[in-house]
């Protein structure tokens, strides 16, 4: 039983890096490429008696749902087959949320740029920022202001990055023993309970909905 347990967490650990790195990358880049590849068709659709909102949202839902299905099939099923527990469910949940966040961000990038190459470049930059640069800055902040009580500040800073937020939800499951030692207790108290789940979910929802909303606003006025 224990043997199986450690195996599951090992599987989840290896999937975690995929989750935090590859999922945002694929979601973002696929969305941008898709947006520009179907540009002419979008144009034809817009020449039909349809609202721009309808065309945009249909496109968003199509891309988001196919990426979500891809995630569930590629990552979700194998994990769940290994064992349904709170870690694997959290993995599934954060993976789906991250997919949606990066689809939204990529849509925003796509409507704001004029050509495909630039859009992919900016999407990669966004991905790079959230998965690497942001954390590097955070570590620098932690070092530079180590004498000050940072917990609350870090909590806010971490919530501002969807990748970090997803990561913390995961390490609360996987490294709870280590986390309890330090500020972790604060994070456990904050994210570990029902209202914490609600909080992180709503932050992620903001990360999903706000970019889509702005993108829609831009798209409605965009010259195709």
């Amino acid at each position: 039983m224990y043997q199986l347990d450690t195996d599951t967490s090992k599987v989840i650990l290896s999937l975690l890096s995929i989750l935090l790195l590859i999922v945002p990358l694929i979601s973002g880049v696929f969305t941008t490429i898709h947006f520009y590849n179907s540009y002419e068709f979008t144009e034809l659709m817009l020449a039909q008696p349809l609202r721009r909102e309808t065309v945009f949202l249909a496109q968003y839902i199509a891309v988001a749902s196919s990426l979500c299905v891809a995630f569930v099939v590629g990552v979700g099923f194998p994990t769940l087959i290994y064992g349904v527990n709170s870690s694997s469910l959290t993995l599934l949940y954060t993976g789906l949320m991250l997919t949606l966040v990066f689809v939204s961000l990529a849509f925003l990038v796509a409507v704001l740029t004029r050509d495909k190459a630039k859009a992919i470049g900016v999407t990669l930059l966004v991905w790079f920022f959230f998965s690497l640069i942001y954390d590097a800055i955070l570590l620098w902040v932690v070092y530079a202001f180590g004498e000050y009580p940072l917990d609350k500040t870090l909590l806010v800073l971490v919530s501002l990055n969807p990748v970090d937020l997803a990561r913390i939800l995961m390490i609360l499951k996987l490294d709870i023993s280590a986390l309890m030692g330090y500020t972790g207790a604060l994070y456990k108290d904050f994210f570990g309970n029902y209202s914490g789940m609600l909080f992180s979910t709503s932050i992620l929802l903001v990360w999903i909905l706000v970019p889509v909303w702005i993108a829609l606003r831009v798209f409605k006025k965009k010259d195709i």
Partner: peptide
């Protein structure tokens, strides 16, 4: 110790 929250990040 607060750096712990960066655990498992790509960086």
């Amino acid at each position: 110790p607060p750096a712990m929250i960066l655990w498992r990040s790509f960086f």
